[in-house]
Amino acid sequence: MTVPVFYSISDDFTPYAAVSLHSLVKHADPKRDYTVTFLHQGLSRDHEKALAAYNRDNVHIKFYEMSDELLKPIQDRKENYLRGDFFAMSIFYRLFIPDLFPEYDKVVYIDSDTVLNDDIAKLYDHDLGNNLLGACTDTSIQFVEKMLRYIKEVLTLDPKEYINSGMLVMNAKAFREENFVDKFFSLLGRYHFDCIATDQDYLNEICSGRIKYLDGRWDAMPNENTAALENPGLIHYNLFFKPWRFSGIQYEDYFWTNAEETIFADELKAELAKTTDEERDTEYHKMDHMLGKLDTTLQDPHNWARVKENEQVTL
């Protein structure tokens, strides 16, 4: 039985995805079989070739182009912005994996800004029971007061149970049986919730109470408030902590050790070198812009909290 792993990428994210894929292949168990699929809407021939080069006897690299028709209901609107400042359709691809790949009852999804330090099959092997997801609590927001208020007062969820969507073990069979995509499109089309974390918020809302919480080593995220984990299984360079833009961040050595072993090493080092302090400062403070939504969403008569209370919406 293969271990199905999915990424969602845009063409410009290929160098980072290659680093992640390289680390995945490096830690893959030679006695097991893996199928890695890249969901995209247009990859250059050179980039597809670079990723396909990681094919092995037991690691099969595939590509799936997402159709415009499937994604048509998701509009380039401010409430669907990533990090509050731009629209990225690729963040929604993961939601469709169970329906697009009915041959799989369980899958692993990881973001492209990740590095594996352990065998991803260990993630896949988690027994989800009747849960829809296996995931980790989002540690990147536990010290951000406005984000905690947003989760408690707008989403009416417990911040300690709010998961990050950059690593998901998905109960694909249950997703299909319970019509997850229909629920997502129904909520999206009817309410246009102004989200801070878009697809992540929908996953937290719809899957609330049906999430298996996994050890935090499977979604270790750089931050400035806690010590680094000694043995992270998966490092996720979430938000603005990108080692190809910033120096001195937690877990950067894991990234560069793997990056040096890819054909993109020089390109990635050049990107770090040419990033100015002014650009880093702008990037770092994008969090403030993202959290600026708190005040408006708190007052929004159609925010998650008011809709759930007044209309008794069943998610």
Results as ranks from 00 to 15, higher is better:
K78W: 08
Y284Q: 12
L24V: 14
K308N: 11
A228G: 02
D219E: 11
L39N: 03
V5N: 02
I9R: 05
R77S: 13
M66A: 04
E224P: 01
F87R: 13
F6T: 09
E205M: 15
K286R: 13
D11H: 01
H22L: 10
F264N: 05
V154H: 02
L51I: 11
A305Y: 01
H40K: 14
C195H: 11
N310L: 15
P159V: 08
S10H: 14
T37P: 10
T257A: 14
V5K: 04
L294D: 00
N55K: 03
S20D: 06
P98A: 08
L116S: 01
K152P: 00
H302S: 14
L100A: 08
N117M: 03
S112H: 07
N164W: 02
N130P: 04
A228H: 02
D119I: 00
Q142S: 12
S23T: 13
N171H: 14
L157Q: 05
S20M: 03
V19L: 05
Y162W: 10
N117F: 04
H302D: 15
A28Q: 06
A28K: 03
Q299N: 14
I110P: 06
A270Y: 14
Y150C: 02
A53N: 09
D201H: 00
R280A: 03
A135Y: 02
E279I: 02
F193V: 04
L95F: 06
P4C: 06
Y93C: 08
L291K: 07
I9G: 01
I74W: 04
P232F: 00
I61E: 04
E161R: 15
V313D: 10
T226I: 11
F87M: 13
R83K: 14
L168W: 02
E252V: 01
L21G: 00
P73Q: 09
P73W: 14
E261C: 11
F13E: 15
R176G: 11
A265F: 14
T156E: 12
N80E: 08
L82R: 14
E161P: 07
L234D: 00
E283I: 15
L21H: 06
A28N: 05
A174C: 02
C207P: 03
G248S: 04
L43K: 05
V115P: 01
W218Q: 12
Q299I: 11
D201R: 02
D105K: 10
P102S: 07
M221W: 04
I97M: 02
V5W: 09
R83D: 12
F96C: 09
A220W: 01
T14C: 10
L214V: 11
I91S: 15
V36F: 07
Y213D: 12
I196Y: 00
E145S: 06
M147Q: 11
A17M: 08
G248V: 04
A270R: 15
H27W: 02
P4D: 07
T314Y: 12
E153Q: 09
K286M: 10
C207V: 04
H47T: 07
D119N: 08
A227P: 14
V115Q: 04
P222A: 05
L128Y: 12
Y93I: 01
Y7C: 00
F13Y: 13
C136A: 10
Q299C: 12
